[in-house]
Nucleic acid binder design. Sequence first.
DNA 1: ATTCAGTAGGGTAATTGGGGGA
DNA 2: CCTGTCCCAATTACCCTACTGA
Lengths: 75, 75
Amino acid sequence: MSPQISQQDRTDAPGALLTPAEVASMFRVDPKTVTRWAKAGKLSAIRTLGGHRRYSEAEVRGLLHGVPQPRDAEV
Amino acid sequence: MSPQISQQDRTDAPGALLTPAEVASMFRVDPKTVTRWAKAGKLSAIRTLGGHRRYSEAEVRGLLHGVPQPRDAEV
DNA sequence: ATTCAGTAGGGTAATTGGGGGA
DNA sequence: CCTGTCCCAATTACCCTACTGA
């Protein structure tokens, strides 16, 4: 009964997380630039226990589309 | 060995993006001119979170080939 | 435990955006 | 009508070393 999602399915999960390199390649910028966006608060990011940042794929895709943040599920 | 394609080759990905300098170099014009094209709606562009523009390589190549893109609203 | 790529951190150079004029 | 260049300020890219993640 543990609806445990396989870690390999993270690319399909609603809360999919992207690495800095992934986001950087989507925007055609340097990974350091993505880090700068996170520091500037332009992009929300969570930190691993070691201090590395992970970004929400949903948020990144929204930004790429020029769509404001779909904070809520738009049905 | 195996011609394995990486997850995402920036220049090969469907959403490959080009920097203003790249597009300018391809057209032999000034980056500012490319910016004017984007402002005039002749070229579609997405913006980084910092405001810089990134252009679709597919669209640019189509324009270079003289292939009218479906985003042209001219007569 | 080890290797290796990726990431964080700071600092500096290059590019870009915007307006204006030639 | 279109393009190249000037100014400025802001953003981004690359340099380095040390640590994390797999």
